[in-house]
Each structure stands twice: as structure tokens, then as C-alpha cells.
Amino acid sequence: MLERIAHVALRIGTTLAQSGASVRVVHEGARLVTSGLGAEVLGMRSGYASFEITVAMGPLTTTRMMQIGPHGVNHRLDFAVRDLAVRASQGGMTPEEISAELLRLVQETPRHPPWLVAVATGLACAAFGRLLGADWPSFVPTLLAAGLGQRIRHALLAHHTNVFVVAGIVGYFAAALGCIGARLAGSSTVELAMMASTLLLVPGVPSTNAQTDIMDGYPTMGSARAITVIMIMVFAVTGVWLAEFLLRIHA
């Protein structure tokens, strides 16, 4: 029984972590499920790639670890899983029922269609461009370049390509397309259009989560997130630099 409780608590925690939740939320989710099943959490440890828990029931204890998959941001799944953890904490559910409900949530929680995500991401980057001072002729080229960049990212991640390599490739293509498009549109802010086209790669949620984790007393995870953010940005900027070099743009 204790092993099944530890397993479902780990699954709740790892799903929350992969959906973009902070460590405090991951631990609270696992703790709620464990207490709802009549056990007690003696300790938890969250790394960037794994999650460990020790649960106890009377004199019996067990410690289990689970791998955390790729980190992303999925707001609807995050809050659906939190809701499940709250329901489980009220008792009346077995580990198998919680596990089945979690699987259903992972499979059935709706996602926006990829074309809509691409258009929305393109619009967001074009809006970023305006906020940075890019002119109107560069608006549509930035929208198209970032939208195509998002489609490329989606396709590469679906093929399990390394996230840092994806950042480099998308950074290159989005910057190159933004530059060519802005030039053709007669923009006088080509460099801003290039930069704005790649802003879809900026990991905004992980960068604030890094600070939240450190403030909550989890500096190991916070530091790991911060380093990952810096690495992604370095790869993205390398792509932009390559596009600048090949298209003869001088900063």
C-alpha cells in the first residue's frame, strides 16, 4: 500500500513540475495526496530531473524516486492536477483511482491547436517589437517570422530534439526570416525586428520560477532553472548571431 501511495504522490508531483509549477506547489500537491491516502510525508527532495519522496504509515516507511520529464508550461493541466490533489486530500479515493484520474487529465486536458499557438506567438512577438520601438512596416514580418519559428519549434520538440539545439535552430530561422521580411517591407528597424522575432524563445516563466524557488528555500532547483534559462538564451542568441553574420547585419 505504502509503495502505491508513494508512486501516485510522485506522479502528481512530476506532472506538476513538468507543467511549470514551482517546487513549493509540487511538494504541496504530493503532500495533499499522501495525507488523503492516510500516510504521512517524512521528506521530499526536488531536483531538476528527479523527484524523491519518503512516506510513512505507522512504523513502515518507504522512499521512492521518479524521473521528471521535459519541463514546460501548461496552465490548464497544472491547475487541473492541483484540483485533483485537493480532491484526493479529502479522502475517499484509492491510489489507483487518483492515478487513473491523473492519466485522464494528462490525456484529455484541452490544448490550443498548434496553428492558433503559432499565430498567437507571432502576434506576441510583433507586439514585443512595438514595445521595443520597432516601426510599423516590421510588424507583419515579425509576426510571420515568429509564427513560423513557433511551428518549427513545435515540430522539432515533437521529434524529441534537444531543447538547446531547438533554441539555436529556431533563433536562426526566426531571426533570418524577420530580417529578410523587414527589409522587404522597407523597415528602418531591421535589427529590432530580428530580435523581436526570436523573443518566443525567452523562458519567462522558468526565470521567475527560479527566483520563487530560491525565495521559498529551494536554491538547488532555483539555480538549476536559472542556468537552464541562461543556456537556452545563449543558444538562441547564437542562432541570431549566425543569421546576422550570414545576412551581413552589423550591430
Binding site: 511549470g20 508550461v73 501548461n74 496552465h75 490548464r76 493541466l77 484541452p110 490544448r111 490550443h112 492558433l116 499557438v117 498567437a120 506567438t121 507571432g122 502576434l123 506576441a124 512577438c125 510583433a126 507586439a127 514585443f128 512595438r130 514595445l131 513557433q150 518566443l200 519567462g204 516563466v205
Partner: peptide, 17 residues
Amino acid sequence: AFGALAAAGFGVLFNFG
């Protein structure tokens, strides 16, 4: 206006309802 547009766009990317 453009802050709103950027936040909404990223909201879609982050799968907000």
C-alpha cells in the same frame, strides 16, 4: 495595448483557458 497583446499571445502559448 501592445502589452495586452503580448500577454495574451504568451497566455495562449502557456495554454491558459
